[in-house]
């Protein structure tokens, strides 16, 4: 029998979706391991957050009323203490930017192995984690031969639990060593403002690394203009400074939900897919037939964008540059 402790996440007063997802992952794992599911709610309006995550499958919610926003020094200490106090042997933390900022430190402090970015969990006397390698080209099964383990769970892999539960809520009095708090969050900035908000777009033509050179961008710009779509892109083009941040679709950019999304020369890295899989119809054009983008596309064309895009422009009466 192994109890599971899962940690929720919030930002700027809002509980994040991953909190509901980690409840699903946690309750499935607790059931398989024959234990209880404990949830940790740390910082912010803990009572309101505890109420919101009082969901089916949760046995006990522990609130830690320390700080308004995420601070990794507070989280590290609080989670370490919660793990000890609850007697849980399995700890789940969302594999978010903030999860990445404290999960390895908790593992170090507790001297418990950590497996990151899990997409599936199994328990068969021991923990079995499914995770990807090589940009989603392979999946691996990872066994953890240890009574205790920490796993970070990839966002949007588990269906969020929405059904209400009847967990007991307990305030946990964490002993936070303020002298160990060496980082200070001073604020937030919105980085993706600008002329267009892709989250509102109904039709997006999106371009990735396949475009090769900055000067080739005019080709997809011509396509977007001809068909009346907004231009989006994957991360590398924004990293290169070829397109502004507000054009970036993905986990750290915009999450978009258009009627049609055409992914051109985009391999379909998980961070990109997180931002566009909500599109009604996805069309992918890529030279690599094994590109992960084809796994989520409704329609696929295995071809060279430098041939297909000009032909498509002509189809709609435009002129390729």
């Amino acid at each position: 029998m192994s109890d599971v402790l899962a940690i929720t996440e919030h930002r700027q007063g809002e509980l994040r979706d991953v909190s509901h997802e980690v409840v699903t992952a946690g309750s499935e794992l607790a059931e398989a391991a024959g234990g209880d599911l404990h949830l940790g709610v740390i910082g912010g309006d803990v009572d309101a957050f505890a109420d919101a995550v009082n969901l089916e499958g949760v046995d006990t919610i522990h609130t830690v009323d320390e700080g308004e926003e995420f601070n990794h020094d507070i989280y590290t200490q609080a989670v370490e203490q919660l793990f000890d106090a609850t007697g849980a042997s399995l700890l789940l933390i969302p594999h978010t930017v903030n999860g990445m900022d404290y999960a390895p430190a908790v593992a170090g402090k507790l001297d418990v192995p950590v497996v990151t970015d899990a997409i599936e969990l199994g328990y068969n006397g021991g923990l079995e984690v499914t995770r990807e390698m090589y940009g989603s080209k392979v999946e691996t099964t990872v066994d953890v031969d240890s009574d205790e383990a920490i796993v970070t769970t990839r966002p949007a892999e588990w269906t969020p639990t929405e059904a209400d539960g009847d967990a007991s809520v307990e305030a946990f009095d964490a002993d936070i060593d303020e002298s160990a708090v060496g980082s200070t969050v001073t604020g937030f900035e919105e980085a993706a403002g600008g002329d267009v908000d892709l989250s509102e777009s109904e039709f997006i033509v999106s371009i990735g690394r396949g475009i090769e050179e900055e000067e080739n961008l005019e080709l997809v710009e011509a396509l977007a203009e001809t068909v009346g779509a907004d231009l989006g892109s994957s991360r590398p083009l924004v990293d290169n400074g070829w397109l502004p941040k507000n054009r970036q679709v993905g986990q750290s950019g915009k999450v978009v939900t258009p009627d049609v999304y055409i992914a051109i020369g985009i391999s379909g890295a998980v961070q990109h897919v997180a931002g566009m899989k909500g599109a009604d119809t996805i069309i992918a054009v890529n030279t690599d037939p094994s590109a992960p983008i084809f796994d989520i596309a409704d329609y696929g064309a295995v071809g060279d964008l430098f041939d297909v895009v000009p032909a498509l422009i002509e189809e709609f009466g435009g002129e390729a540059p």
């Binding site: 930017v97 750290s252 950019g253 999450v255």
Partner: peptide
């Protein structure tokens, strides 16, 4: 720190 959804956290370390 580049958080999700185009938001950045400003932190002193």
């Amino acid at each position: 720190r580049e958080l999700e959804g185009g938001v950045e956290e400003v932190t002193e370390v």
